[in-house]
Simulated scan of single mutants.
Amino acid sequence: MATYLEQSLAKLKEFEGCVPWMYRDTVGKITVGVGLMLPDAEAAQALPFTLGTSPATPEEIAAEYTRVDTLPLGRAPAFYKSPTALQLTQQTIDAKLTSVLEGFEADLRTQLPHYDTFPDTVKMALLDMIYNLGPAGLFKGFPHLIAAVDAGAWAEAAECCMRRGPSAARNAWTREQFLDAVVTTIKAETETWLKRIWGRIRQTLNVLFGRRP
């Protein structure tokens, strides 16, 4: 079964799209992979773009960045792909996304000391939100959500996670992850309660029938 990090990676590809060549997003920023913004040509040159089966040179990467930057913004990603467009391999995209998610997890652990004890669905919801909003956007923009998560109040967190910008489907999915944690927590607490009751029953039976505990 896939780990929560692997599931998060797959959902981000679904929500953000996964484009191996450079393109301009709706506000004109040059982007690649799974919503990875490239602020300048130097940022693009730090990635292992390829031209066909060969590694692209720094000069080729800079030239491709300039080419894309001169095109109109807000078109579909396919508009920016030329016959000689440089691309990233899927392995590179996944590795970069995983690295970014691990960095965001470090931010989450700093702000939420009990992060590692949270249900996997809560971690997935938080990773989706922090990837979309950035650390400042999440921690400063959603104080009630962070307080609810810190208290383990998953139902309350589900009511505080709505964002402006992402699709209704993406917001609904994030909300469902928090609500799923409510069910998971109830199940865990019920199992613990039943084990304690059964333990007491066994102790009582042992006393009644003279058995050793």
Rank of each mutant, 00 (worst) to 15 (best):
A2V: 04
L5P: 01
E6Q: 14
Q7D: 11
L9V: 14
K11M: 13
L12P: 00
K13N: 13
E16S: 04
P20E: 09
W21P: 04
M22T: 07
Y23W: 14
R24P: 05
T26R: 10
T26N: 11
K29N: 13
I30C: 06
V32A: 05
V34D: 07
M37S: 11
P39V: 09
A46T: 03
A46I: 00
L51R: 09
G52Q: 08
G52A: 10
P55C: 07
A56S: 12
T57R: 08
T57Y: 06
P58H: 12
P58T: 07
E59T: 07
I61H: 01
A63R: 06
R67H: 07
R67E: 12
V68Q: 05
L71Y: 12
P72N: 09
G74A: 15
A76D: 11
P77C: 07
F79T: 03
Y80G: 02
S82K: 14
S82P: 10
T84F: 08
Q87P: 00
T89G: 10
T92E: 15
A95C: 04
S99R: 11
S99G: 15
L101K: 01
E102C: 10
F104K: 05
A106W: 06
R109K: 14
T110G: 04
Q111H: 15
Q111S: 11
L112G: 03
P113I: 11
H114L: 13
D116W: 01
K123H: 09
L126R: 02
Y131P: 00
Y131E: 11
N132K: 05
G134K: 02
A136T: 14
L138I: 05
K140T: 12
F142W: 00
V149C: 02
G152F: 04
A153K: 13
W154I: 02
A155N: 07
C160A: 12
C161A: 12
M162G: 06
S167E: 09
A168F: 07
A169S: 10
A172D: 15
W173R: 06
R175P: 08
E176M: 08
Q177V: 08
Q177R: 15
Q177S: 10
L179Y: 08
D180M: 10
K187F: 12
A188L: 11
L194E: 15
K195I: 12
G199H: 04
G199M: 03
I201G: 00
I201S: 03
R202H: 12
Q203T: 06
Q203F: 00
Q203A: 11
L205A: 14
N206H: 02
